Structures are given as C-alpha cells and as structure tokens.
Simulated scan of single mutants.
Amino acid sequence: MTALGFLYPGHSAEDDYPRIEQLLGSDIRLPLVHTDIGEDAHRVDALLEMGSTDRLAAGVEELRLSGAEAVVWACTSGSFVYGWEGAHDQVRSLALAAGMPASSTSFGFAHAVPEVGARRVAIAATYPDDVAALFAEFLTAAGIEVVSVSGSGIITAAEVGTWGRDEVLFLAEEGDHPSADAVLLPDTALHTASYISDLEKALSKPILTANQVTVWEALRLADRRVNAPELGTLFTKEPIVQV
C-alpha cells in the first residue's frame, strides 16, 4: 500500500481525489488535508498568503499520521505566484516541515508537459488574466513554450468549484491553440477527474488538468507508475526517454 498526501486549499473540487483514487484501481491511497486559505481570491497578495510556509506546515502532521510517503501542495496559483525560484523555496520548506519528499501542482505541470511529449502548450485558465500570465512565466522558466494564454476572470475558487462538464469543455476548447501540443487547465478548484477522456477526444491532444497532474506528481515522487486510461494520456503514455 502506497499513501500519497495532499495539502488542498479550502473546499472546492477535493472530491476529484477519491474519484482519482478509484480510477487508479490499485494499492494507492490519496489522503487529503485541507489548509486554511484565508481570503478566497485569485489575487496575487491573497495567493501569496495562501501558500505561506506557516499555512502549509499546519497540515503536515495529519499527513504524517496518515502514513503518507510524499506530499504535494495541491494548488497551482498558490505556488507559481512565487515565481520559479520562490516555488522551489516553498517546496523545500514543505519537505523540511513534513519530513518527506514534497512538490506542488505547478511543478507537476512542469514535469508532466515533457512526459506527454509536448513542447508547446496552450493555457486555458479560470483565473484573471494577470494571474494566468504568471503561470505562463513559470512554465517558460521551466523551458516550456507557451503559445497562448486565456483567462476566464474568475476571482474565487468557490465559483470555479461549481463548474460542470459543459463549462470545463468550453474552457478547454476556447483555450486551445492550433500549434499547441497539449492544453493545460491549471486550477485545482476545477472538477476535471471525470472529464479528461472526453476533453482529449474533443481536442484530439493531451489535456493536463490540475488535480490530475497533482496526483501524477505525487506518484512520481514515490517512484510509482499506474496505467489509468480514464485519466488521460498522462496516465497511459510510456515515459519519455531523455537523450
């Protein structure tokens, strides 16, 4: 049995995690601890506070008691908002507090893009444009070419959490770009676990969504691979061999 821990901000789309656990269909548990988000706002100052060291450290003891072998900060905007170097500092502090390997959703995206063989990506974000642009900067620092960025201007995670299949499909289709090898939906407040196969069929390319890559990143930290076709290309593709 492998237990992988997640620190999830507030309450929006956390039910994606038991859904993903079910789809993995193996000896993997995904315990999740909610962190205090402070103000629910996709605004830089609020996001910096949401991802602060003290807020994250407060949840790690519960994850240790769950038997987690690795922990991922399940928040994209609350990690990339710190920038490339700051996001590294954030996960280093989390690993030290937790006493186990740590990462964040933002780094999950940075690792997942080359994993599916993509070089150019389109960002289809729920965020306001200024926050979406910071995610593009983060990916660029990771060596990924961002060919388009679209933001939906949604301020709160609570509103994003109400979106269903039709809204998610529209978001992905509107945010796609002809030259993109993959489309990224970066908000962990967005329900996507049940829609990834539909999204990939509709767009005919890999779709990377926040909760999907968060779980994949935790598996990567634990050196586990699981074939789960309903979770998309990321969970079916053989690893890219670096030469």
Rank of each mutant, 00 (worst) to 15 (best):
R92W: 01
G232L: 12
R29I: 01
G86W: 04
T188Y: 02
L184D: 06
A136Y: 00
R220S: 06
E173G: 07
L134F: 07
R43C: 01
I144V: 14
E137T: 13
L134T: 07
L24A: 06
H111G: 00
R220H: 04
G151W: 02
L7P: 15
A3G: 01
L94W: 01
D36W: 15
W163E: 08
W216A: 03
T192L: 01
D187Y: 06
L203V: 04
I207M: 12
L63R: 04
I37H: 14
G161H: 05
D36C: 09
D15A: 13
A125G: 12
S77L: 04
D198V: 10
P9T: 04
Y195P: 02
Q90L: 11
A182M: 06
A189P: 07
V215Y: 07
I144Q: 04
R165Y: 14
Q242C: 05
P229L: 03
D16G: 10
V226N: 07
I144A: 03
Q242A: 12
A136T: 05
P9D: 10
A182R: 04
D15N: 14
R64N: 09
E61S: 15
A124K: 08
G5C: 07
T76H: 07
T192G: 08
N211W: 01
D130K: 00
S52E: 12
L65P: 06
L169E: 13
G117I: 10
V116Q: 11
P239L: 03
T209F: 01
E174R: 13
G10L: 13
F235D: 14
A74P: 09
F235G: 10
T214L: 05
L190Y: 13
R55H: 08
S77Y: 12
V146Q: 05
L185W: 02
V72C: 07
R165P: 10
G59V: 13
T236L: 02
R220Q: 06
A172I: 08
T35R: 10
T233W: 05
D198F: 06
F170S: 15
V243P: 15
A98M: 07
P178R: 02
Q90T: 08
S197A: 15
G161R: 04
A222V: 06
T209P: 00
R165Q: 15
H42F: 14
A46F: 06
A68Q: 00
Y17N: 05
L184N: 02
S179Q: 05
R220L: 01
A58N: 13
T35G: 10
D89P: 00
W73R: 03
W73H: 12
L24G: 10
H191F: 11
G117L: 09
E39S: 14
A180C: 11
S104P: 03
V168M: 05
V60K: 04
H42W: 11
Q22G: 13
A112C: 11
G143D: 10
L32E: 02
